[in-house]
């Protein structure tokens, strides 16, 4: 039943570009899918108490590495992607290993990662001769009026095509989530999150377990940053790095629900539609309004709905179904 519903949902999703919807709708769809993927990647570790406030770092490393290699060395993203992911993994290990080895957890871990996001942002700005600084950078275009698709540069002008790339990426995120969820490592992570000493006492290598999920999360986040860069064909430090971006991830995930598989994606849709709604309603007149509203809503969510919108809905659905199921069985 659930499987069938998933399949129908997927087919419906894949049919979207064929329905002749406007580019704007496709753009919203692609954006939700890419950020849904990134938020899912963040939640892989976030749901086990490894709250990172610096995932912007991995986005930035991903997007900038690929673009820099392409722009300055002519290296195709096909090679740039593995290099960028490897770099993100390296940074994740450099940050994660000492934290986990010396038991920096909770708020302290969050603070360390917060610094990381800022360091990457400053690095991008400082290397402005290469990166374009805070003005951002455009990947050298391989597209023209005649060329709508370049395999070498991994650039495509059609939103319809990119939509499928985004769907693929998003499905990858959900698949990884499911793999983690059904693995023994999930139990080890729950245990290590709650009682680190007790987890170690039954044979769990806490450092390795946490590091593995962090590396996985960082690698996928870097992929998301790359996808964003290749889609927008423009990146700047504020959109793929820094505190604001990192906090946006956390807000979206908390709003959507980080303990259910589609929660982060729901959070992506929720925040994007909220931002678009505010933009349409108020234009750009009231600067910083969306940030203020995010902040207020974050407080409200944390107090009243810590499991997020989708998490709450899932729970309501379960409790509503539980008492009725025996009756439907006898009927």
């Amino acid at each position: 039943m659930g499987r069938l519903a998933n399949l129908i949902g997927l087919v419906a999703l894949l049919a979207v570009p064929m329905l002749g919807v406007s580019d704007y709708v496709l753009h919203l769809g692609i954006t939700i899918l890419i950020w849904g993927f990134v938020y899912t990647a963040w939640s892989l570790m976030g749901r086990f108490g490894l709250v990172s406030l610096g995932h912007g770092a991995f986005l930035g490393i991903g997007a900038y590495t690929v673009t820099m290699l392409w722009n300055h060395a002519g290296i195709s993203p096909w090679l740039g992607i593995p290099v960028a992911v490897a770099l993100a993994v390296l940074v994740a290990v450099l940050i994660g290993y000492p934290c986990f080895r010396f038991r920096i957890t909770g708020h302290y871990f969050a603070l360390v990662t917060l610094a990381l996001g800022e360091i990457v942002l400053m690095l991008i700005v400082a290397l402005r001769d290469w990166t374009g600084g805070s003005l951002g950078v455009t990947p050298a275009s391989a597209l023209s009026a005649d060329v709508s698709f370049s395999l070498v540069a991994l650039q495509v002008s059609s939103k319809g095509v990119f939509f499928y790339v985004a769907v693929g990426l998003w499905l990858l995120g959900l698949w990884v989530w499911k793999r983690v969820d059904s693995s023994m490592a999930r139990y080890a992570l729950e245990a290590a999150n709650e009682q680190e000493d007790a987890a170690a006492s039954v044979g769990v290598d806490v450092t390795r377990t946490k590091l593995t999920i962090t590396v996985l999360s960082a690698a996928l986040t870097a992929l998301g940053g790359i996808a964003y860069g290749q889609y927008q064909l423009y990146i700047n430090p504020e959109t793929v790095s820094g505190i604001a971006k990192s906090l946006e991830i956390v807000f979206a995930v908390i709003a959507g629900g980080m303990y259910v598989r589609l929660g982060p994606t729901f959070g992506a849709a929720f925040t994007l539609l909220l931002a678009e709604g505010l933009r349409v309603a108020f234009g750009h007149d009231v600067h910083g309004l969306d940030g203020t509203i995010y902040g207020l809503m974050l407080v409200i969510f944390i107090i009243f709905m810590p499991e997020g919108i989708l998490g709450r809905l899932a729970r309501l659905w379960e409790t509503r179904r539980a008492p009725t199921s025996p009756r439907t069985a006898s009927a």
């Binding site: 080890a188 245990a191 007790a198 769990v204």
Partner: peptide
């Protein structure tokens, strides 16, 4: 020091596995 987010049996199965 129980792992309260896991069921009783899961608490112990985790220990057996690791």
């Amino acid at each position: 020091r129980p792992f309260t987010r896991l069921k009783l049996l899961e608490n112990v199965a985790l220990a057996a596995y690791y």
